[in-house]
Design a protein around this nucleic acid. Structure first.
Lengths: 252, 252
DNA sequence: AAGTGGTCTAGACCACATC
DNA sequence: ATGTGGTCTAGACCACTTG
């Protein structure tokens, strides 16, 4: 090492901290371009890989986002609020409204892509729905976009014999959506369980959601039950964690 | 390039995918050591930095965990289930039980460290509690450990004038915890709101929770309301995402 | 003592975005 | 055309863990 660089802390961390301080102080605002690899090499007298490492810290913490050929930019965080309980109140979807319309604050959440297929039930889904592993399920997948960016992947599983012949097996389920149709089939969902996890995305998920590095996904697995406790739907959702705040309101 | 390596995919991604496949196929089980940098350099004929990059993919996806001087190991995922609604049922904490005891599946969740201080209310907390920014709040911080590993940081804010003189200002709040004491003070919490987000941890959080690279945190912000709608507590929790599944049960 | 991952250098070529 | 980040090499020294 040339100079008297003394601190026990790695160089790239010191550089990363200086950058983070500049971001938090407001010197760089969301959307601004940060100093690039070449700038950092000059400013701090380090090799390219070390400058890269420093910028990598900010990306892996979700503070910055690299755009190939353009630079590294400060990310903005403008999440949608998703109300997990009110949104599923029966008077909402019972009235013919889409569940999803309750979510948005002026921005539009649109369905990008829909598929409906029939498959043998995956083992964990079969276990929840109380099916045999060779029973078939109706699988509905949807992708939702907000401001042109995909933010939510949804895969819904329903027992094939329950929904056979209903609009649930078509792309457009009609007013009120799947739950209104289930009610018409005598399987009205009245109780819900949502399980929430978070982890880093697989490369496939990062691709589908166009996630920059450093963005986790939130996994929501919802099970819908009828009044006699029968599970009638399992819905696995993958959310861009930077796009969502989940809210649950309840009484003691 | 020496051989006929043709694919458009970067080398480090191909190596990473091969490793991931081996993990998913069960060739390497949780806790097993993966091939190290030197192994990959030999096997694939790449430079050290490329082998590092490949291992970095698995770490940043939360599949593997590096232990300095030892190797890179397959991580195991054994989360605790936290029931967000039942756990706050009044008959639980009303009966003198700790809220946290409902969480565990045989493993023990212990409080590691407790602090109680008084501070001016941080702006966002003041806004939620309806305080002036210069009003003081009682701040209770706790760290919870599971199997010796810290999994949850909790910071609770209460209006200082409300809790003055009560056991809430002491480290040990007594049977039933803070909520039982609030009830005795005529500020019984009956309604709760939990807001959930996820992001990558700051370096401080990663340190406090001893998080390996590639583990996000889940942020739960709970506000407790009395029956007349007055907010009496804001509790900001930071969870190791690899240690928790959150569950919410509710009716339509 | 040997092997491991962590950090760092000093080069290089490429695809891509912006101008 | 220039500059950007993305990938890659071939070395090096260090701190750490394990046998």
């Amino acid at each position: 090492m040339v100079g008297g660089g003394s601190a026990k802390q790695p160089k790239y961390q010191r550089i990363a901290e200086a950058l983070k301080a500049s971001v938090h102080s407001g010197e760089y605002r969301p959307g601004d371009r940060l100093p690039g690899e070449n700038d950092l090499m000059d400013t701090y007298g380090v090799a390219r890989m070390t400058a890269r490492q420093a910028l990598g810290v900010l990306q892996s913490e979700g503070i910055a986002e690299a755009r190939k050929g353009a630079g590294v930019f400060v990310r903005d965080f403008r999440p949608v609020r998703r109300r997990g309980i009110q949104r599923l109140a029966a008077d909402r979807w019972g009235a013919g409204q889409s569940i999803w319309s309750a979510d948005i604050d002026s921005r539009e959440l649109l369905v990008d892509h829909v598929t409906v297929t029939h498959q043998p039930a995956p083992a964990p889904v079969a276990a929840i729905l109380g099916l045999d592993p060779d029973d078939t399920v109706c699988v509905r997948t949807r992708r939702f976009v907000l401001d042109g960016k995909p933010v939510l992947l949804s895969t819904s599983y329903l027992p094939a014999d329950l929904v056979a012949g209903s609009p649930i097996t078509r792309e457009d389920t009609g007013p009120g959506g799947t739950y209104a149709r289930l009610a018409e089939l005598g399987a009205k969902p009245v109780h819900f369980r949502e399980e929430i996890r978070s982890r880093m995305p697989t490369s496939t998920e990062a691709d589908d959601l166009k996630l920059p590095a450093g963005t986790p996904v939130i996994l929501v697995c919802r099970t819908a039950f009828t009044d006699d406790g029968r599970p009638v739907e399992v819905n696995e959702m993958t959310l861009d964690a930077a796009s969502y705040i989940l809210e649950y309101d309840f009484d003691a």
